[in-house]
Nucleic acid binder design. Structure first.
Lengths: 116, 116
DNA sequence: ATGTCATATCATTATCCACTGATACGTTAG
DNA sequence: CTAACGTATCAGTGGATAATGATATGACAT
């Protein structure tokens, strides 16, 4: 390994943490369910709660997380708050992940590290 | 919400867990560093240890996880074991994530849920 | 102003998971 | 066969975080 490579790694390390955070943001079934609910339409918290079956405080917590991360945006409408995906590419990312999972090579089921 | 929508959600729930697992597989700085090391070339465990600065058992554990998930593949060569990315699309996924992070909209830094 | 509804926050709990050190397994060299 | 090296596994530990119930905040209607 050359010095240049070492420096590449070090500078890459700066981008490692944000990348990990983004993926972790997507790496939770509840948050994925919420994002799924937002794929087609803007939704109020109540609608998300109903559609996902998750608890209301739970949904609010996850939405805060997704909002802070910039994955969703919000809009006040009276006493409702409507959320929607912040960027088309988020849906693309999820779609790409699904395609990977659909291929025979990537079979996450066999992964014993993350017990479902 | 119609009955059809409910059924869509239920069937979507089946794909939620695997998707979450895949993203969680990518949602760890150490694993991202390992995948980074494999972006250009096939690497032995030792090389990965050196390049990432992680502990050897730690690297082995993560590699097992990545292997079970199907994100990397391995090849025995004498007493060395060489790992490589299992699929080009994995690199693409990481690249797409970086592009998302580069846009102003998605600023994961502000997310307080995941303390670095 | 008061009650009601929608959403957000807080504290608690339980769980999961990454890291470490010690050790086992497997392969090659002498 | 034995030593040295590369890799994998195991047990223990600490830290992070998802879910829940209770409660607070904010907005609308009457």
């Amino acid at each position: 390994m050359t010095l240049q490579n070492i420096q590449d790694d070090l500078s890459a390390a700066d981008t490692l943490e944000p990348r990990a955070k983004l993926f972790r943001g997507l790496g939770d079934p509840s948050r994925l369910a919420i994002l799924d609910a937002l794929l087609s339409d803007e939704r109020s918290v109540q609608e998300i709660v109903t559609q996902t079956g998750l608890g209301q405080p739970n949904v609010s917590n996850h939405l805060r997380c997704l909002l802070d991360c910039g994955l969703v945006s919000r809009r006040n409408e009276g006493r409702f708050v409507r959320y929607r995906l912040a960027d088309r590419r988020i849906a693309d990312l999820i779609r790409d992940a699904d395609q990977l999972l659909a291929s025979t090579a990537v079979g996450v089921d066999a992964c014993r590290s993350y017990t479902d």
